[in-house]
Amino acid sequence: MINMFPSLKKGIGKTASLTSPRPRWGERIIEKLILFNGILAIAVLLGVFFILLRQGIPALIETPFYSFLFGTHWYPVSDPPTFGILPFFVATMWVTVISTVLAVPIGVGAAIFLAEVAPRKVADAVKPVVELLSGFPSVVMGFIGLVLLSPWVQNTLGLSSGLCGVTAGIMLAMMSLPIIVSVSEDALRAVPDEFRQAAYGLGSTRWEVIWHVCVPSALSGISAAIMLGIGRAIGETMTVLMVAGGALALPGLPTDPMMPMTAAIASGIGNAVQGGPQYHALFAIGLILFILTLFVNLIAARILDRQRRKFAAG
């Protein structure tokens, strides 16, 4: 019989012992490098929080937390300086509320249309446009707000300046639309088809199926989308810096010029002396922003996680 299995061991080399592992130094080094980078990345992520705490806490010691949060005057260069961020905080609330009120119905409506009504082809054609919007840099949106929207708002509402909370809110609404649309659409598409078929089987119209079956089933995903949209609006800087008006006074109306927290940091940091009271105060604002957005995003992540589990189990 011919030997069908001539050994090719000349290539592979003598088999090593099982009990004395080859050191494989190259691999060990690479694996150490991977470990190092994993830790480094985590360190950077934790570092952000740590730095904000370290640089922000001094301001909260200097100015008692209560008067920092609820003080209505921000006079960083007077002697002694006063740091009250209520006007910024209220400004952030105004623009976020306006943005949410506008973006939620439009965004969720668009998502329902995309997921439940539009033919596949239309949805495929429209989705890239929505994604395009999410790619728009915020400075470009600020620019559009500045040259196109603010004159319109000024004329329509009869204001002395178009740079105000309403203008900022409208631009923020546009910027939070993509995330609201895409997350809501995903939530709707995750609703099992059996639900729809069951409802159709009971003689429901398409709209009744959408409104009484799909939307309630996707409600948690849609609320997560709304939270993410809110998070986006709170954290957005350039747009509000350019179109909100930049006034330091406590804004009573949405049509007042105002300065949200992010804008306060961006416009103040250039003049702040390193390690000085204003520097720390701006970091303290950063810390509050960080906690605020973290809170909003955590809720969103929580909701999404629960929704995913619900349909995975079902």
């Binding site: 954290g235 960080f290 995003n297």
Partner: peptide, 15 residues
């Protein structure tokens, strides 16, 4: 990591 993606960019500026 998930939550850091949502941290405002201005905060990274401070960092």
């Amino acid at each position: 990591i998930v939550n850091l993606a949502g941290v405002p960019s201005i905060v990274f500026g401070l960092f």
